[in-house]
Write a protein that binds this DNA or RNA. Structure first.
Length: 401
DNA sequence: TCTGGGGTCCTAGGACCC
DNA sequence: TCTGGGGTCCTAGGACCC
């Protein structure tokens, strides 16, 4: 196999941890290996002493909580491969999952622990590659061209080296796709899961990418893929055969162009190695739907505590914002949002609560609520917020002339 | 016994300014 | 009197992702 003689292709990797949360739990409870396990339901913190109800690695699988004994709301956050064989997948309601696999062990999610492992594996990558884009708790893009010899053999040796380093430091496996751009790398990382490495080149487009359903494209979700299907377009190859003009007519300028480009494997996006948050939020789904009038005291207490948690999050991360909003979800699952932008930035629980309270009053409250959320947007760093606040009004108005 | 929680980005309309 | 645009900010909703 010879390398293309023309300009060498970029080598971008997408790395995806395999069944991340479930695999972290299996490290803690190795006796559950091979047993169907579902993570979901209540959220617990590892600082919570009762988090594991005294469970240890010596307990037998049948001493854990069974999925079919769970009462209440919630969805599957992750399922082990053993549970996936029963058709259980993330996002599925726990009640439905229990029908498919009643004997599965149900574990509450422990995000503190997942974040700890996330830092561990990202530190390993950072020690090898200087340019990395964070894509959440269990995914990254890596610029293989920024690593000495990283493009060798399409990136295969480097991918294997990173897999090995992550395995050694965390005990976890991951899958890596290396391709000319982020779009194709993301697709490729799924080709050989778990613990796979897939190298693809631009010339592999027709053979390896075109047969895939459009839904596999990062950015084509349930709505767009249903729409495409309805138009008789199932695979990426069929999408590539669609005329650009027709795609623009059907999906608008922006999306039409984008669909055309991605179907031909084209993606010019650079890695984004640094980003600042735009908003932070806190929301909760109630155990039972609450009524704005009849359950007012309970609702009010939850509302205040959401604002306090959000203020604490802002303070902890050093941000302040000036757009305060609420989100409501009714018993029929419809959602509305209301927001108000202040003329100053804040991270203060009382200010957030007061402003969010005004937003809440503008929303319809005649249906029962299943979810309440509070959001702070237009974030700046706390230091920046302070310096903005210190500009005297007179000086500000002078700027206008 | 349907349907979590934390985000980002895009669109579209109205207000307001030049 | 009527007729403009462009640009920015704000709100609300929605699609999508992890």
């Amino acid at each position: 196999m010879s390398e293309p003689a023309a300009a060498p292709e970029r080598r971008i990797a997408h790395l995806d941890m395999d069944a991340f949360y479930a695999s972290v739990e299996l490290l803690r409870y190795p006796q559950l290996e091979g047993h169907p396990v579902v993570i979901g339901g209540r959220r617990r913190s590892s600082r919570d002493d009762n988090a594991r109800e005294g469970k240890s690695s010596s307990d037998k699988p049948d001493s854990f909580e069974r999925l079919d004994s769970y009462q209440g709301r919630g969805v599957v956050t992750t399922a082990t491969y053993a549970a996936r064989e029963f058709g259980v997948h993330s996002g599925m309601g726990l009640m439905q999952a229990a029908r498919l696999c009643p004997q599965a062990v149900l574990l509450p999610a422990d995000f503190d622990e997942y974040r700890r492992y996330s830092r561990l594996f990202k530190d390993e990558i950072a020690a090898i590659a200087p340019r990395v884009e964070d894509r959440g708790i269990d995914e990254v893009y890596i610029d293989f061209d920024a690593v000495e010899g990283g493009a060798e053999n399409g990136g295969q040796p480097l991918a294997l080296r990173i897999q090995k380093a992550i395995r050694a430091s965390t005990g976890l496996s991951c899958s890596i796709g290396v391709a000319p751009n982020k779009l194709l790398a993301k697709l490729a990382s799924e080709f050989d899961k778990p613990n796979g490495v897939t190298i693809i080149y631009a010339r592999d487009l027709a053979e390896r990418v075109w047969p895939l359903p459009c839904r596999k494209i990062n950015g084509v979700g349930p709505k767009a893929s249903a729409r495409l299907e309805q138009l008789g377009v199932r695979t990426i190859g069929e999408l590539a055969r669609c005329e650009l003009r027709w795609l623009i007519e059907e999906f608008g300028r922006h999306t039409g162009h984008w669909l055309h480009e991605v179907s031909w494997g084209r993606d010019q996006r650079e890695l984004s190695t640094h980003s600042e948050p735009v908003s932070m939020s806190c929301e909760t789904t109630f155990e039972r739907d609450l009524h704005a009038v009849r359950d007012r005291p309970e609702l009010s207490a939850v509302f205040t505590s959401l604002c306090e948690r959000l203020a604490a999050d802002l303070a902890q991360h050093g941000y302040a914002g000036r757009t305060i909003g609420v989100k409501l979800r009714y018993d029929n699952f419809q959602s509305v949002t209301r927001a108000q932008t202040l003329d100053f930035h804040t991270a203060d629980a009382a200010v957030i609560r007061r402003t969010a309270g005004r937003c809440l009053k503008r929303a319809p409250l005649d249906r029962r609520l299943r979810l309440l959320g509070v959001r702070v947007g237009s974030l700046v760093s706390a230091a920046e917020a302070q310096s903005l606040a210190q500009v005297p009004p007179a000086e500000k108005s002078l700027d206008l002339f």
